[in-house]
Amino acid sequence: MKKFGGRILFLDRDDINTDEIIPAKYLTVLSKDALSSHLLEDLALPGFDPGRDIAGKGVLVTRANFGCGSSREHAPWALEANGIYAVIAESFARIFRQNMYNCGMLAIELPKEDIERIIGASRDAACVITTYPPNIVITSEDKISTWSFVLNGFDRDLIQAGGWLDYAHKKYG
């Protein structure tokens, strides 16, 4: 099972699609690691510089409908290859959300007000996420804030199994 937490990458926009997370021209690779340096490289977001902003981050916080568009699991893989194992958003596109849990990673939904408050936190905020109980603890300067989130039983099982392939292999053998 993965450990979830780290410094936060903020992407303050709705509807960030999988073409923006990893452009189609990189779908020709046959290894997940090869995606690492191309994460979010075409994202048009004022003030965001992938070369500067991604390194050292462990959690992504963003707005509504994150991961819409293509079914490419290359999107979670590109996050994983950069050490980002958790995305916190107001909502997710279905396939992206499922792909995250299928890879043993977290796609956490929080209400809009909570996302507002997290996005308002300092750029240096650090985050620790536990799955049992499902909590997010964010430390920003000298302030500590805690949020609980909903983690369905099956999603927790996928996280613990390390993903859907291992889960299904054991259960539906």
């Binding site: 079914s71 699991e73 396939i95 859907w164 392939l165």
Partner: peptide, 20 residues
């Protein structure tokens, strides 16, 4: 339904897929 590569792998091997 469109799915990711892990769902596809399980589908190919086990003939099942999970949906909400």
């Amino acid at each position: 339904a469109g799915v990711g590569t892990t769902d596809l792998a399980v589908g190919i091997h086990k003939g099942v897929a999970v949906f909400r």
